[in-house]
Amino acid sequence: MPKNQKITVKGSEISVFAQNEIDFISLTDKSGGFKEGSSLIGKWITNKNTLEYLGTWEKINNPNFNYPEFGVIEQDAGVNRFIMSVGQWITRTQAKGMIVKAGRYGGTYAHKDIAF
């Protein structure tokens, strides 16, 4: 799919960004129809089950994944004081399954395996 395409799901337009011939789907657009909006992404990324899934996905698909740092994150997840953003996740673990973009097509994007 060419860069910055849109797909329509149940009447909502969702951006799809292609990088290195891999589609990343906008989580920002997907969450836009909910009352909480994009703040849902922040809640989702701090969920222990989400982080376990992301860690497993990265371990399978990313040879540069920082697995020791993931262990630290996984240990802290689930505690009330735990805070994590998608940007922190990417920086701390060298994750490749999610992208945070600024600008015209900005937002939080996830590999289709993660977004679905």
Rank of each mutant, 00 (worst) to 15 (best):
L54H: 03
I99Y: 04
L51R: 07
F24K: 03
F70D: 00
V72E: 13
S15M: 09
I114Q: 06
K43I: 11
K3G: 02
V100S: 09
N47A: 13
T56V: 10
P68G: 10
E52D: 12
Q94S: 14
Q88V: 05
Q88A: 14
G106W: 07
I7A: 02
M98P: 02
N62Y: 07
E69I: 11
T108W: 03
I73R: 10
K6M: 01
I83T: 14
E36V: 09
Q75M: 11
N64P: 06
G78A: 10
Q5V: 03
E52W: 04
G107R: 01
W89I: 06
Y109I: 02
V100R: 09
V72P: 00
G32T: 05
E36I: 09
T8Y: 02
G97V: 06
T8N: 09
K6R: 12
G55Q: 04
I25T: 03
S26K: 00
Y109E: 00
G32W: 01
G97N: 08
G55C: 10
E13T: 02
Y105G: 06
E69D: 12
Q5M: 09
K35D: 12
S15K: 07
E58T: 09
K96H: 07
Y53D: 12
G11L: 02
V16F: 00
F70A: 06
F24R: 01
G87S: 15
F82I: 06
S39T: 15
S39W: 04
A115N: 05
N62A: 12
E13Q: 13
N49F: 06
K35N: 11
I41C: 05
W57Y: 15
H111Q: 10
A77G: 07
G106M: 09
E74L: 13
F34C: 07
Q75R: 14
D23H: 05
F17G: 00
A110W: 00
V16G: 00
V100L: 08
D76V: 04
T108D: 03
D76L: 14
A95K: 02
F17N: 03
Q19T: 11
E52V: 12
G37P: 01
P63W: 04
D23I: 01
V100T: 14
V100Y: 03
R81T: 14
